[in-house]
Amino acid sequence: MIRLLLIAVAVALLAIAPFHFYSVTLMTIMCFVIFACSFNLLLGYSGLLCFGHAMFFGGAAYVTGYILKSTPISIELAILAGGVFSGLLGLLIGLLTIRRQGIQFAMITLAFSQFLYFIFLQSSFTGGEDGMQAIPRNALFGLFDVSQNLTYYYVVLAFTLVSVFVYYRVVHSPYGEILKAVRDNQPRVESLGFDPERIKLLAFVISAAMAGVAGGMKATVYQFATLTDASWPISAEVILMTLLGGLGTLLGPIFGAGIIIWLNDYLAGFGEWALISQGVILLIVIVFFRRGFVGELSALATYIANRRKPDPKAAASNPAGAQ
């Protein structure tokens, strides 16, 4: 009940937010919220460190942009098409990489991402270094004009809420339970009769598709798609967001994305100092707050709750089967 109430309050706040904050910043945050959630699904819940997630983000931005520029297809379908494109790309790359683990997986995904970056750089349809400019916001469902940022904010909000729900659903699904088991102990899952590689591949495809929706959405917010979106610093930024917010926590990437984008925006005037402060923050988080923002908060909540109750561990420390 309390949870539903909190969600209702959060949605209400988000609905009135653009009247108090710059709507483009808010929309950017939401794009990165989806992107960071997709990344957390991989690293936090499957234990896969993909160091090339920008290829799904940036690739979909071009696909969505291209569709909107060259066809009258409505905007929501164009964004979904970006998600489908990245999902298929994820399937292809996942089939080639999913057997690798740890640092090998990170390096191979980085290599694929760099490979795609150079394809985007050389192709004519992407506009190369100039980027793909003047992407129109075709009417929503072919009916509603969304060219105003304030109106479009609510479309972005709807996409974000649905995406976060999908992410929540995957994590808390029968499949999510197996996925977390693979993360915790892959050989054991295999010994129980599952195919851990197929389980991880599915997570990779879902994550890639979500990253695609985020990238496609960002192209419609700024109305242009650039090489930056497909470059490795974006892959690094999403890792930073997830770690800062709290790896493997449901809400962590949401806060992480919010904090980083807000900081970038706030510190933009200081030039180089924005990057330096980002580095310092990451260092502080890694050294002192290893569970991230949300992770530390929930650990604190558990600690307080345990102090109020008498210690239940006294009863739990008896040896197995001893009755």
Binding site: R169, V170, S173, Y175, F194, R198, I199, L202
Partner: peptide, 22 residues
């Protein structure tokens, strides 16, 4: 334990359902 039970229950790939399914 439920992870192991899911092996024969066949819900291992059901990512769109809630945990009520298991």
């Amino acid at each position: 334990v439920r992870v192991a039970l899911q092996a024969s229950y066949g819900t291992g790939y059901h990512f769109w359902r809630s945990l009520r399914a298991v």
